[in-house]
Structures are given as C-alpha cells and as structure tokens.
Design a protein around this nucleic acid. Sequence first.
DNA 1: GTCTATAGCTTGATAGAC
DNA 2: GTCTATCAAGCTATAGAC
Lengths: 198, 198
Amino acid sequence: MTDLRPDNRHRLVTATAGLFLRRGYHGTGLKEITETSRAPVGSLYHHFPGGKEELAAESLRVAADGYEGVVAAVIDSAPDVASGIRVSFAAAAEVLRLSDYADACPIATVALEVASTNERLRLVTGAIFEGWTEMLATRLRSAGLDAVPAREIALTYLAALEGGFLLCRAAKSTEAMDAVGRFVADRVDAALAEADSR
Amino acid sequence: MTDLRPDNRHRLVTATAGLFLRRGYHGTGLKEITETSRAPVGSLYHHFPGGKEELAAESLRVAADGYEGVVAAVIDSAPDVASGIRVSFAAAAEVLRLSDYADACPIATVALEVASTNERLRLVTGAIFEGWTEMLATRLRSAGLDAVPAREIALTYLAALEGGFLLCRAAKSTEAMDAVGRFVADRVDAALAEADSR
DNA sequence: GTCTATAGCTTGATAGAC
DNA sequence: GTCTATCAAGCTATAGAC
C-alpha cells in the first residue's frame, strides 16, 4: 500500500486519498499527510499552492478514477451486465470484510462532510458521482436499455451501493450489501428481459 | 430552529445535533457548540464528563429518535405501507430542496467519519440504523410480508434513502432520490401483491 | 450547577535558507 | 524544487472561583 516512488507530489496525492478513506476530510491533518507520504510541508505547498483544499480536490479525482476503473473492469469481465452488477456487489462486500469494514467508497465520507460547507469540493464530488453514473448508464444502454431507464437504474445502483457501504460499515456486517445487491441485480434482470421482449 | 429553553444540557444536545447535520463530527468544534447553545464550556463538561464523544453519542441518539418519529408518522399517515414509502421518498426530496440540500440524514456523515476511527460512536450509529431497520421491517410484516423479505426490503429502503441523500447533496439535485424512490416503492408493491396472492 | 480563564496541543499556512 | 523553523489560530480539556 505504501508508495515507494521518489516523487513527493505523487506520494502526497496517494497518501491523502488513503487517509480520506478512513478518516475523512476534517479528520485528516496536514501533519499526518506529510508524515505518511514522507514529504515536507514546503513541498506540499509548492505543488498545491491552494493548500489542503487543492490537494484534496486532486486526491479525490485520482481515487475516483482508480475506483471507477476497478468497478468497470469487474462489470466488463462478466458475461453480461446483470451478472457483472451482481458480482460487483459481492466484491464490495468481500473487500469490506477483508479490510475490517474500512475500504469502502473513497469519496462518500468527504462528500457528506463538504456538501454544505465547501462549494469547491462539493462540485468535485458531484462531478465524480456524475461520471460514475454515466459509466454505468453507458453499459446499460449497450445491453439494450433506453437512455431514461438506463440512467435511472445507474443512479439506483450507485445509491444502493453507497447506502450499503454506510450500513455495512456502521454494523460491521455485510447483510445490507447482500440485500441491496440482490434487489438491484433482480431489477436489472427484469429491465433487460423487458427490453429484449420488445 | 433555535432552542429557547433555559436548560443548558438540553440546548447543548440539540445544538450539537444541528451542527453535526451540516458539518459532521470533526468539522464541529466545541467552541461552535457552546456558542450556538449559549452554554459555557464548564456546563458541557459538567453534564458530559466524557467530553465531545459523550455529547456526540447522546446528540446522535436524540436526533435519531426524532427522525425515526417523523418517518414513522409519514408512513403511518398513508393509506398503506407501499404508498407511505412512496410519500417518504418524495418528502425527503422536498426537504432537501427547501433546505438547499443541507437537511438530510442526521447520522450518516458522522457514521462514516467514525466507522474506522471511534468504536464507541460506531456502535451508537450501528444501533441507530438497526433500530430504523426494525421500525420499517415491523410495518412490512404488519402489511403481510414474512420476516425475511420484510427485513431485506427494510434494509434496501434504508440504503437507498441514504445513498439518495448522498448523491442528491453532492449534485444539488433530487434526481437520484426520485429514481430510488420509484424503484423501492415498486418493489414493495410487488412483494405485497405476491404475499396477498398466497 | 454555572461560569471564566487558561493550559497544552494540533491545526493549516508561511518565510526564507539551501 | 526541497526542506526547516515558526506563526497565529484553532482545538479539547481542566482548574477553580462563585
């Protein structure tokens, strides 16, 4: 997990993303960031003149790109979208269990923290969720759904996954993720069956 | 919104709950809490010897009880559970819009912040979500569902609502809540229809 | 029980040598 | 670009008068 690259800027970004995942925005101090990335404070302010906020914006975007890539790969490696979605929920539950319920969405905690207090970061998180939704909607359209139901199901998938992460972390149990996974995958099956029958 | 009771302890709790809603746990300082509740620091530590953590635990429980009461009242005032659930999603979207996307779940932000960093508060948030799930499952059982599907749908309802809050706040749009509301309510309709036909 | 003052530490940010 | 020293302001918590 530790970044060994001799590149302060890169290590600052990955360390920040990792700390946000478990501690959130206000729970992560610059001291902790510079310590775990082994970069001096001056280096942080050289690469990110906007300070913590600017570093946070870039870290969120990088973490989001990585997460989107992983989810897309999981879905695309399945024989069809519906089973890909089913597998992605199972994988989310498995990662939660293996990480003692720490590794969940790299954006959600910060998104809630900044939603009403930091407009710049709120826009960053909004754009990330919009990008994820579009990634999913694209795959559902490729499977035969019209644009409107594809977007609706994509939003429902994402909301269910995020709500599942929240309930599972609070309970230290994967029961909620298992329940929402079944629900969403069944819905996708039904929507695709209906589209095929036309 | 401001509490006018001449009771320091009570005002501390309600002020804390209100601040957590918009700023989260680490984003809320004791200074802000004592200022908005017009209670001195000494009074805080007299009533809550455990400091911020103990005050937070009680504030979360009080806010959760209030929220559960409102949701239960909304659902119970509808002619049946399915339409009650439909109305509750519409009400959540309406409150979001009216509050400029600030008034959402009073627990979620803190729950994510503490999930991997504060075991005592994590247990408090876990118990709250469990209580809400049971409140919903009870109503679904009363409507005719068996215990297992009732619990599954209750968990899905809650996860969808929480995920909807997250996406709506980040986007400053109710699109996600509208989408998940339709999906969950339709699913409840289907489950109840199947139970009735037996 | 109420309240003020303040300790002790950490925070985000800056200045300036190298 | 890198790094250290340091700042002012914030934090949580405590002491002790009333």
